[in-house]
Amino acid sequence: MSDESIEAVLKAHPTVRSDWLALRSEEILEPELLIVDPHHHLWDHPGDRYLADRAIADFSSGHNVISTVHVQCRSMYREHGPESLKPVGETEFVRQLATGRNRSDTSLHICAGIVGTVDILLGDDVQPVLEAHIEAGVGRFRGIRPTVVWHESREILPVANPEGLLRAAPTRAAVSCIHKMGMTLDLWAFFTQLRDVAQLCRDHPDLTVVINHTGGPLGIGPYKDKRTEVFAEWRSRVEELAALPNTVMKLGGLAMRYAGFGFNERTLPPSSDDLVAAWKPYMRLCIDLFGPDRCMFESNFPVDKAMCSYSVIWNAYKKIAADLTAAERRNLFSDTAARIYRLDLPQLPVTIAKS
C-alpha cells in the first residue's frame, strides 16, 4: 500500500476527538482482571501521531493491562535501501519505542510482541525480509500481517488494493515461508473475503492464522441498512473458519467505520451498554464457535478510539463475557493472546479452557 493509499484510508476514518470522548465516564469494571491487548498500533503519520506516551495513557486508564502487541500500520518505514526491506523500519521503530518507554515501576509491558508486514507477492523471497524483522525486533517479533483487505466498492475501501492476493501462487510460497520460520499470520479481511481466508487455512493446516476484527462484517456502502442480511452471510463464513482448528479470532475492530455503527455521529460517545447491544451478537457467536481458547479481545487503538474510549471498550468486553467461567474469561482477556503470540509473562500462567 502506497503512502497515498495510507493517507486516503486515514482520511476516510473518523477523527479522534478527545474532548468528545471525555463526555462519557464509567467506573472500571473488574479492575483486577488481567488484560493482554493483542492488537494496537503506534504510528507517526502526517497530522496523526499515536506514540508510546498516548498509548500508555490509554493502557493505564483503569483496566489492568499487563502486556500489549503492536500490529503493523505502515509507519516509519525505512527511507532508503531495497523496497522489500522498507517495512522493517516499522519493527525497528516500535522496538526502540517499547524498549525506551516500558515502565519499570509497573507490570505493563508495551509491545511485548510485534507483528510486522511483508509483500507476500515476493513468494520465496520473503525469507530475508522475515529474517530482518526478527533481527530488528530483538526478541519481540512474532508474526506477519500482509495487506490483503480488498473490496470493489470505493465507498468501503478508498484505495485500489489488488484483488485476490490470497489466491495468488506467490502468496502460497510466502505463507509457507512464514510458517517455516515459526511465525503467526494475522489477516485483516472483510467478510466477503473469508472464503479465500478459509482456503488458505486449509492449504496450511499447521500455520496459526489470526483473523482480525471479528471477521470484518460490513455496514457501509452497498451494505448500509442491510445488517440482517450481512449478519447471516458473515455467520456462514465464520462458521466455516471456526471448523478449521488452526484459526484464531480477534474480537474487536467494530468501532471502525466499516461496520457502520456510526457511534462517532452521536452527541454523546457510546456507553459500554451501547457497545454491548451492538456487538454482542457477533462476539458471542464467535466465542461459541471458536471457543474461548481460540478467541481474544482486542482494542484496535487508536483506530477504534474515534468511536469509544479505552475504558469503555474494555468495560463492554467484560459485560459481553460476564456469564462465562473464570477460565474462559482468562482465555479471552489474556491467555489466548499470550499463547498465540508467545509472550514471556511469568506472572501470567497460560491455561487453555476446554471447549
Rank of each mutant, 00 (worst) to 15 (best):
D3W: 11
I6A: 06
A8F: 03
L10W: 04
T15V: 15
V16P: 09
S18Q: 13
E27N: 11
E32V: 07
D37S: 11
H40E: 14
W43T: 12
P46Q: 02
D48T: 03
L51Q: 15
D53Y: 05
R54H: 14
R54A: 15
G62I: 03
Q72S: 13
S84Y: 02
V88D: 05
V88H: 03
T91F: 04
T106Q: 04
T117Q: 13
I120C: 07
D124Q: 12
A132E: 09
A132R: 12
G137L: 02
V138R: 12
F141L: 12
F141C: 05
R142K: 10
R142W: 06
P146K: 13
V148R: 08
R154Q: 08
E163V: 06
E163D: 15
L165Q: 00
A168D: 14
I178E: 07
G182S: 04
L187M: 07
L187C: 02
F191S: 07
A198K: 11
H204L: 13
D206F: 08
L207T: 01
V209C: 12
I220C: 06
G221Q: 05
K226C: 13
R227T: 12
E229S: 08
A232H: 06
R237V: 10
V238Y: 01
L241N: 05
A242D: 08
N246F: 05
A259E: 07
F261E: 09
F261K: 09
P270M: 04
W279N: 00
R284P: 00
C286D: 10
D288Y: 03
L289D: 01
R294G: 02
S299Y: 01
S299Q: 02
N300D: 06
C308I: 09
R330I: 05
L332S: 03
D335A: 13
L343E: 09
P349N: 11
I352Q: 14
A353H: 14
S355H: 09
